[in-house]
Design a protein around this nucleic acid. Structure first.
Lengths: 114, 114
DNA sequence: ACAATAAGTCAGAAAAATATGACCGACAAT
DNA sequence: ATTGTCGGTCATATTTTTCTGACTTATTGT
């Protein structure tokens, strides 16, 4: 793999690499699609309109590198590749939930302030 | 305020706006500096070498907009402005911790695999 | 043997984020 | 009256991220 996928960590903050991966375009979408069941590359491409191979490819590599997803090559009749959320990735979904709660908290406050 | 600070949310994921703010350059650094005590604009600029007014200004606006920090104008002798972490922002620091843990979990696995 | 599909890679173009340097208004000190 | 500091904004330049479209390799189907 040619590594054009290196990300810069500006503050030597330990969690920031993952934060950068999470905030990469399409990554939250990929999580959402994978949430229920494993997916194949081409399914992701269809499931995320506006996305493209290149970006998904880079995103998937990053996610794999950080242990958020797992890649399985299934040697069956059509031989296909399957991506699924890892335990670590599942753990991360809680982070998304936390962020959503915070977001909602803030919206409530804005409404209350009117 | 001219709003050149709009961020695009690609998947209509509720927590993603905040995620994008968090992953904005200097934002984790700002949190780190503010962690112990409120800071002034110029202090941030000094405390984060390599940063610049423009980026810090945009970051602070974003953070304020999402309720992560609070801005106070103190009408004392030199009249200064103070930024501090809000309750929501404090809550977010836990998210950073979670991410750090995940990051470490992953590193441990890599080491174990060697 | 030939075309088709899946899962990509690669180089270059376009878009978005970040940085630079000039400038401004309020206030303070000399 | 002039200079200096604080807390910014603005237009523009640079850098980084994302997108496009052509190409590739492996396997399968006809």
């Amino acid at each position: 793999m040619t590594d054009n996928t290196t990300i810069i960590n500006h503050n030597n903050c330990p969690g920031q690499d993952i934060l950068n991966v999470l905030a990469t375009k399409w990554v939250p979408g990929i999580f959402k699609v994978m949430h229920r069941e494993p997916v194949r590359f081409s399914e992701l491409l269809k499931a995320l309109p506006g996305s493209n191979k290149q970006s998904l490819s880079v995103a998937l590599h990053q996610m794999e590198k950080h242990g958020l997803i797992e890649k399985r090559i299934i040697k069956e009749k059509p031989l296909h590749i399957e991506y699924s959320i890892s335990d670590t990735g599942t753990y991360l979904l809680d982070v998304f939930k936390t962020l959503s709660e915070i977001s909602n908290m803030n919206k409530q406050k804005e409404i209350a302030a009117i």
